[in-house]
Design a protein around this nucleic acid. Structure first.
Lengths: 111, 111
DNA sequence: GAAGCGTATCGTAAATCGACGATAAACAAT
DNA sequence: ATTGTTTATCGTCGATTTACGATACGCTTC
């Protein structure tokens, strides 16, 4: 019921059968689920949960991926809100956004 | 040569082997998360959870998508094991696989 | 048999993803 | 200011996803 951002776009509201709040809710969950829809991103999240915080470089070392690729995955995780990064000098310290994490867990648990 | 950073020191002793078992685990979760990584699939799962079972045609009616597209999403959901379908005469009756659902919930909850 | 209904699959096109190397940007230390 | 370190972004490529209409398959009934 806090879903104030109802989907208001697009002419094609064809059927009244689809309840709009449900659509927004589905998009919400889909976005968060998509953040975890790649093994590399799952492992990054797992890493951050284990350490409470982590430099980008450390993550790169743990993964068999190029630095630019890891950076892309981190960008995706930031966009979904699951992860946040603080600039610390020339480095960036990443950590889990516990709020977003709790939201994801609740959305899944309440399925 | 690229990122074979000579492991001069494993600073982060707190994280024991994130390597091999974790990789399989990450792929497991990623696959299940990917099943829910599209709003249409989230809504289908939601629908099935609400009704305990549902004909394919009913699902199509609830969604602003073509029948073939819904069928594709159902195929994906079946492949991940989250949904199963029983042939019932000329129709197909879909329902949630509670085992897979429980597995997903546990994987997320234990994150 | 044939006809009708419901579902799956095929073929295709546009969009997006995932990966990489190269390069730019931001900062600390010299 | 120059250098070195760390991270983000750009450009590109192939693979995958998503969507659709058309069509094939399976089952029931005539």
């Amino acid at each position: 019921m806090v879903r104030t951002k109802a989907a208001t776009q697009k002419c094609c509201t064809t059927s009244e059968k689809l309840s709009l709040p449900d659509v927004a809710w589905a998009e919400d969950l889909a976005k968060l689920a998509w953040a975890l829809a790649h093994p590399a991103r799952v492992r990054i999240v797992r890493l951050l949960l284990n350490r409470t915080s982590c430099m980008c470089g450390e993550i790169v070392e743990e993964m068999p991926l190029a630095q630019s690729t890891v950076s892309q995955h981190l960008k995706i995780l930031k966009e979904t809100g699951l992860v946040q990064g603080e600039i610390d000098g020339p480095r960036v310290c990443y950590c889990i956004n516990q709020n977003a994490m709790a939201k994801l867990k609740k959305l899944i648990a309440d399925l």
